[in-house]
Design a protein around this nucleic acid. Structure first.
Lengths: 341, 341
DNA sequence: CTGAAAGCGCTTACAG
DNA sequence: CTGAAAGCGCTTACAG
């Protein structure tokens, strides 16, 4: 990057002080219309663009927000990023993204980088490792500087900041109930995100609803996709499973895949419901019934809340906002119309 | 963000000039070991972190690279971002991401933002609109400043910069050949990205290979997923389609979905091959045969090339690097073993 | 209405 | 080996 024109360059060209130029470009009332016009004309002519670095240093504002997410390959987080980016851009903020890859260390490093880069605030969803170790010491620095924070989806009560999520326990309870209402009794809760707040809450919701109906709980935690097929199959056979509540989209779809492979019919033999309304479940055959957790909206609200804080439109105590969820019924569960037959 | 400690603060504490402190922290040979130790100790004690804004302003280096992609919901771009982020972080660079949403205007705005934010270089994949209008005037500014650029996947010869991609024409030709070798003759080329460089090249590859075999070409461009089902179905029936080469992952999977819905068997009646080795195709039932375009690797190489340029490890003329593609045979095409039966 | 001066937090050539 | 000074490109309180 070379040859960028500066205020000083402009000043020399038209023999006006840099102070005046600066004020003119910023439309200060101190400056006469005539000068303003002249300055703006020459600035446009030479494609002058203020150096944001210098502005930031002076104003202590970088117009940049940091985003730290566990991964971007999951549709949920991609959708959230899309939401964040939309709102940020609309408000003139840039977005710096780091991926924690579910690692505490990487999350901490990313947070440090962002603090050093003077982001004005951070939006994040905690890594699996952070949540299972329950270790938030890497937030100390950020909190000391009063760096504004918004946590979404994978949140923690141990961090004092604004939060946005769905009510995971309730949503999972409703998902379980959705299968029960269709006459399913042997329902397994399948999770590849156990250890995360979200995973645990969804597990709780499932457990509660099963208990409400005096059904016995069947929990299947899978940490590695290599074990997926055998573990799932064993569980299905041993427990005569007729319903699956999966804690995310990919695992829901994968469970259908393997069930079909072993000649179980979906939804006739086994009904499946998953989380997140993404492309994967929508395109799948059979299409996946899901809890819509409004991924994009979560990202949007996270960004809105953060920016409202930054621009002082939102004052006062922190809050945890919960987004409504709905169940989108598709082919992986028995349809209501079929129930009556 | 408040109360960040500065060099000046440190200087006051231990009565040493800021110059010396700065040099000590940067391990300058000018400074005695004793002073260095003392300075480092006090810096650590107070969690001193240099203000990158100030450093950047002085050094004219921001250690930040910009990424502009059409969207992040597509697995291909998510995988590329993952690759970029990995390499960038390994080398101490931050990543600013903007989404063009396939719009020329948004792409231009993003580019401007990035220039203003003093990114050291930019990695991008062109928006659909940019490519179909063939309008690159928004690059003028960036090129004037000699901003280092790497284009990946959706590239253009009209922009002078390093590029990385696969050989789309060849890959598509091979994909078509893959179906032909299995005895397919009525093959349609299905694209939702016509107008992009990538879409056009893949179309050409398909056309060439069909002509090589004296088969008639059948092209189906779909601009809106609303028309997908009817358009596809008409084409299948009118042309007695027995093979589909789809230009991306989602459209490949969607074509299977609709074909199945209308009682065509996959792969027995129709073989389908798509582009990009992502989660969607891998999880799908039947699993999707794909051209692996090494999405993550494209991101990684793009970042490596850019950083090599920035750090002067890569000098001389620009180059276009092509990554090898392979076909990953799965259930959506007839398997070789079955051919022999 | 315009401009000189100071300062944001660093780095570095130069002097001592 | 240490420090005073200048400067990166801006903004803004202050003087005129």
């Amino acid at each position: 990057m070379e040859g960028k024109i500066t205020l000083k360059d402009l000043a020399k060209m038209i023999n006006i002080s840099t102070s005046t130029i600066s004020k003119a470009l910023n439309d200060s009332p101190e400056i006469s219309k005539k000068t303003k016009d002249r300055v703006k004309e020459i600035a446009a002519l030479h494609h002058y663009r203020p150096n944001r670095l210098a502005q930031s240093l002076k104003n202590n504002k970088t117009k940049t927000i940091g985003v730290i997410i566990p991964e971007v390959l999951s549709q949920f987080f991609a959708m959230a990023v899309h939401g964040i980016e939309t709102i940020a851009n609309k408000n003139g903020y840039m977005v710096i993204i780091c991926l924690s890859n579910e690692s505490l260390r990487k999350e901490a490093d990313s947070l440090d980088m962002m603090i050093n880069a003077n982001v004005e605030g951070v939006i994040m969803s905690l890594s699996k490792e952070t949540q299972s170790l329950d270790d938030y010491s890497h937030f100390k620095n950020a909190l000391r500087y009063k760096l504004p924070f918004v946590l979404f989806d994978r949140t923690s009560e141990k961090i004092e900041c604004d939060k946005i999520s769905i009510n995971d326990e309730l949503a999972s309870l409703e998902a379980t109930n959705y299968l029960i209402k269709m006459g399913r009794k042997k329902i397994v809760f399948l999770s590849t995100i156990s250890g995360t707040s979200v995973g645990e809450k969804r597990k709780n919701g499932y457990v509660k609803e099963m208990q409400n109906h005096m059904f016995s709980e069947i929990i299947l935690d899978i940490n590695n996709y290599k074990d997926f097929e055998t573990k799932l199959l064993n569980t299905i056979i041993n427990n005569k499973i007729d319903g699956i509540v999966a804690a995310d989209e990919l695992s829901a779809v994968s469970s259908i895949k393997y069930a079909l492979k072993h000649s179980f019919r979906i939804p006739e033999d086994i009904s499946v419901i998953g989380f997140n309304n993404g492309r994967l479940g929508k395109s799948f055959v059979p299409s996946l019934t899901v809890v819509d957790q409004q991924a994009k909206k979560q990202g949007e609200r996270a960004a809105e809340i953060l920016i409202d804080r930054l621009e002082m439109r939102l004052m006062g105590g922190i809050k945890h906002e919960f987004l409504e969820t709905t169940i989108i019924g598709r082919d992986s569960t028995l349809l209501k119309s079929r129930e009556n037959k």
